[in-house]
Amino acid sequence: MIEIDEELCKGCGICTDFCPMKVLETSDKINKKGYYPPKAVKEDECLGCRLCELLCPEFAIFIINE
């Protein structure tokens, strides 16, 4: 499962650019700080590799692998 804390995001776009499966995309919803956080558009294709979790500079994404 992909857990995204939208309010922590600073919109750097690293997760959306480096996800090997292009699971994440920038959403059109703006957060309180004025950034566009990512959203999972193809969650079923997620590999659970946790690259986005570790690359994120703000701890805004956590992958929960069952």
Partner: peptide, 8 residues
């Protein structure tokens, strides 16, 4: 959080 670092 979020941190005080610049975006990116």
């Amino acid at each position: 959080f979020p941190t005080k670092f610049c975006s990116g």
